[in-house]
Design a protein around this nucleic acid. Structure first.
Lengths: 124, 124
DNA sequence: GCATATAGTATCAAGAATGATACCGTGGAA
DNA sequence: TTCCACGGTATCATTCTTGATACTATATGC
């Protein structure tokens, strides 16, 4: 988060929920985390996995998650460069969340996607 | 979502994750859903639960979630008006996600908040 | 000498999300 | 007669987020 969209300070009952979601609500974060669940990936590997994500955004999201302690960045002093991203221990603790999201999506994706091959809101 | 921040159409492997999170990434949505887990609430009850949320935003988020089929809006023909919000059946299926978020937040909230009773960034 | 691959960065622009504030109708209570 | 509660809406402004595009350094292979 460039600047916390979900505040981390108030503590109404929904606070913890807010806190947790605040860490994964970047446009690509959940997807990145999901892919990292399967193992370490290099920058360009991530780019290939997360299509349509510009390098700027990818760097952005990775840096934010690194700052949040969710992922680890390992740089190899090589040329051409080699940088590996992986889940930190903390990041791994998000696995239940990610799996719950995945499960829900798998179960309900038909609702707003391709029940009959196209989305109703899709003009084509 | 005024306009889907998380696209609902691509289908890279992280797709379902994206789809699920797309429905709850409004600034207040997860919190609203969390409170509705405990039962039906009226508009102003929600306002009291979700502090700092302007009526405009509350309406906004509620309408979006209604459009997404997550919540149900029941209007009573009374004066003064009475409107009740509750989780739809679909909304209820999000409970595992919400609980996972809550569990994570509860376990890790100390990381970025009040490890010693107050936030260091809190002026008071 | 030249192109290639890697892991980014810089700059600018657009678009989306959120906030602040004021306002609405109505029926009942004071 | 005036005020309040309820469930919002309207309008404007601001801030946050995201995208597009071009660009960098350097060792290696051709």
């Amino acid at each position: 988060m460039a600047k916390a969209r979900h505040s981390r300070f108030d503590c109404t009952p929904g606070c913890s929920v807010e806190a947790a979601i605040g860490l994964i609500d970047g446009k690509w974060k959940s997807i990145i985390l999901w892919h990292l669940l399967s193992g370490t990936l290099r920058f360009n590997e991530l780019r290939r996995h997360v299509e349509n994500c510009t390098p700027r955004m990818l760097t952005n999201q990775l840096r934010e998650m690194e700052a949040d302690g969710l992922i680890t960045r390992k740089v190899y002093a090589q040329v051409p460069p080699k940088v590996e991203y992986s889940l930190s221990e903390l990041g791994r603790t998000m696995e239940p969340i990610l799996r719950a999201l995945k499960a829900w999506g798998d179960a309900n994706i038909g609702l707003y996607g391709k029940p009959n091959g196209h989305d109703p809101r899709d003009p084509a």
